[in-house]
Write a protein that binds this DNA or RNA. Sequence first.
DNA 1: AAGTGGTCTAGACCACCGT
DNA 2: CGGTGGTCTAGACCACTTG
Lengths: 251, 251
Amino acid sequence: MNREANRPAARSAAPTFSPLYRQIKDFLIASLEQGEWGPGDAIPSEGELAQRFNVSQGTVRKAIDEMAAENLLVRRQGKGTFVSTHSDPRSFYRFLRLLPDDGVAVQSVSNPFLCETVPASPEVAGVLGLQPADPVIHVKRLLSFSGQTVVFDQIYLLAELFSGLTLEALRAGERSLYSLFESDFGVRMINAEEHLRAVAADAESAGHLGVAVGAPLLLVERTAYTYGNKPVEWRRGLYCTEKHYYRNDLG
Amino acid sequence: MNREANRPAARSAAPTFSPLYRQIKDFLIASLEQGEWGPGDAIPSEGELAQRFNVSQGTVRKAIDEMAAENLLVRRQGKGTFVSTHSDPRSFYRFLRLLPDDGVAVQSVSNPFLCETVPASPEVAGVLGLQPADPVIHVKRLLSFSGQTVVFDQIYLLAELFSGLTLEALRAGERSLYSLFESDFGVRMINAEEHLRAVAADAESAGHLGVAVGAPLLLVERTAYTYGNKPVEWRRGLYCTEKHYYRNDLG
DNA sequence: AAGTGGTCTAGACCACCGT
DNA sequence: CGGTGGTCTAGACCACTTG
């Protein structure tokens, strides 16, 4: 790494000081972004990276530590360091926070029933950084836990990144949506922000979820980001919380 | 630290191996728990701790790094390492996730109107690890943002830890509840878990929040923990989400 | 200038995993 | 066994804060 090119910069005025391990981290993130190593792959060992960058192993270690803390990489002692993937439950975080009142988490079943390209509404365009009427892919689906429909999702995706997505592809396989996005479109969701509200069920939601019109539903609006905090998905989920709750750990 | 006493243990059967830095971390946490250093105080420097434990500075550093990541300590370059406190906004995390739709976060105003000791209901006893009918302190309060009442909280506290808490004390000062608990009762909330649901407003909540009976409200049930994952508070909050939302960052 | 945390090094040894 | 990550050391120097 360019020791000499960097250190003097710290003494000069504007350019923010960037320690070696951060330069290495940035390089590794850029490599991930470019697909240098795919999801689930092992990255080079600490020793090899240290040689490649001409730094000590401890410096590489600090870079990888931070990326592991951000769920970009997963360390496994004795085996290596691996790129996180949504396909592997033990590796990537799950975004669905809904749990049944009694008993433990059960596998959810996704049932998509619409997938079409439409012009973005002003709201969706604003969130995804598009011009109004730019194309987005609109997906509607239901989520069930133990045979009971609990979530009605409306999902909006950047058409540019997910062109070719079909209802058949969504229906195929047992994979999660994000797992499919990752393997079939090379788009990895690495971060998301949710806004929660209580709302009254409208006719469509009530029908899907089997509740009365006007019944209280949990509205979950999610913006999901890929590398560089680029928003690529916005979804509006209506959760029936009669027998399930949304769990959040603070701290 | 007891190098020799520890290492052989790793080779024997049962006792789980514990690295040096973890022993130091555990020692520091125990010290915090016993009030060795109060909220906002500086703990000894890395060098001094290294000498005291007869380890290298790097080992102390790793222990402190983990505690800083858990929001137990706050590092400030050039100054020292300090015990987190709810009194200092820049130091401890805030638990309130409610934000106004438009504009940035505004200071909330707490308006408590009831504080009495009552026997724990079975539900509260279960969560707080008490026997039913053990005493708990029941607090009711309203929270306002910019003059508008948005939250109706019912709070249950271990009577044992908060004996002497009065409505007057709650009303005094501008401090947050957790700041008051920390300074007046020596109880520090370090972790919490929330369960969210959408519910229909009952008569009491509707009256407090100025909405119709049956209107959708966000129900937030929180269990808060102090050191050792000991639950010390349970609260049931009803949030009016007409002009505010609950924000959650995933990842 | 002195004291603190922040970065970096070079090397040792341990724990874990596969072959 | 060899290779990986995990722990630990001793020491150097940098960056930030305060007096």
